[in-house]
């Protein structure tokens, strides 16, 4: 495992810096005593105070988290199945069905889902409609990454398991799932970030009077980026960090291939 070399560290380090420079700005300005986000004026916790008194914003954050968690969970489940089905069973229509939603311009997906929900399904718009809409475009991301993980893998282990009398479920549980776990988790993470960020599809599929975070933020940004938005972004990152650390404590192998036994 000591194959890492200096060049690799350097290159990767630069990329990490690229990823974090804007983030540092976001976090710093959330403590800045100036509405404009232009230069450092002084330290304040006012924006956090304001945030915690903004009921609509908190409700929006809660709604968005519920949507993102449900949509990523559903998309991970369906996407993993789709990835397996494409790889193992070579279902012809699936690659198309999986790729097309990613290729579809957001605004078209938003409008067509809205039309479909209202005029064909006669569904009342709400959290459920947003979750379905988000799942639709997230499934593809998960399926593609799961399939990429499976590609080039030696299929003989699956056959061996079957020959040893394992039921399909046992084969899946004991062999397939541990093998694809990193891809499943990566797919879930991608779905989560896609869902929490989505503005266009959410705008079209949301119901009446339900604040959703990206819409709420877009609304506030119209005038100027108030540091309150920086504050909520900072809190979101903290929450994510916390949850992943907890998960890591629970099982340190979550992002790696299952232990071979």
């Amino acid at each position: 495992m000591k194959r890492t070399n200096l060049t690799l560290w350097l290159a990767a380090g630069l990329v990490y810096i690229f990823l974090y420079v804007p983030l540092v700005i976001v976090v710093i300005y959330s403590f800045n005593d100036s509405r404009l986000n232009a230069e450092w004026v002084g330290f304040t916790l006012d924006w956090y105070y304001k945030l915690f008194n903004n009921q609509e914003m908190l409700l929006a954050a809660r709604n968005s988290l519920i949507i993102a968690v449900s949509a990523s969970l559903l998309a991970t489940l369906l996407g993993t199945m789709a990835g397996l089905a494409i790889h193992r069973y070579r279902i012809r229509v699936l690659p198309f069905l999986v790729f097309a939603p990613i290729a579809m311009p957001e605004i078209l997906l938003g409008v067509s889902l809205l039309l479909f929900f209202l005029q064909i399904l006669n569904l009342t718009l709400g959290l459920v409609s947003i979750i379905i809409a988000h799942t639709t475009f997230c499934v593809g991301f998960v399926a593609i990454i799961v399939r990429a993980r499976l590609q080039g893998m030696d299929d003989s282990i699956f056959e061996a398991a079957r020959d040893l009398g394992a039921t399909p479920w046992q084969t899946f549980r004991l062999i397939t799932l541990p093998l694809i776990m990193p891809a499943v988790v990566a797919g879930a993470l991608m779905s989560f970030t896609l869902s929490i960020d989505d503005f266009v599809i959410t705008f079209f599929t949301k119901g009446i009077g339900e604040p959703i975070l990206p819409i709420q933020i877009y609304t506030m940004i119209k005038i100027a980026v108030t540091p309150e938005i920086n504050a909520i972004s900072t809190l979101f990152m903290l929450l994510t960090l916390l949850l992943i650390i907890i998960a890591n404590r629970l099982d340190s192998g979550i992002l790696q291939e299952g232990k071979k036994s």
Partner: peptide
């Protein structure tokens, strides 16, 4: 992944 838990616009 962490930076992407913040908002796209921000």
């Amino acid at each position: 992944v962490l930076p992407f838990a913040s908002n796209f616009l921000i």
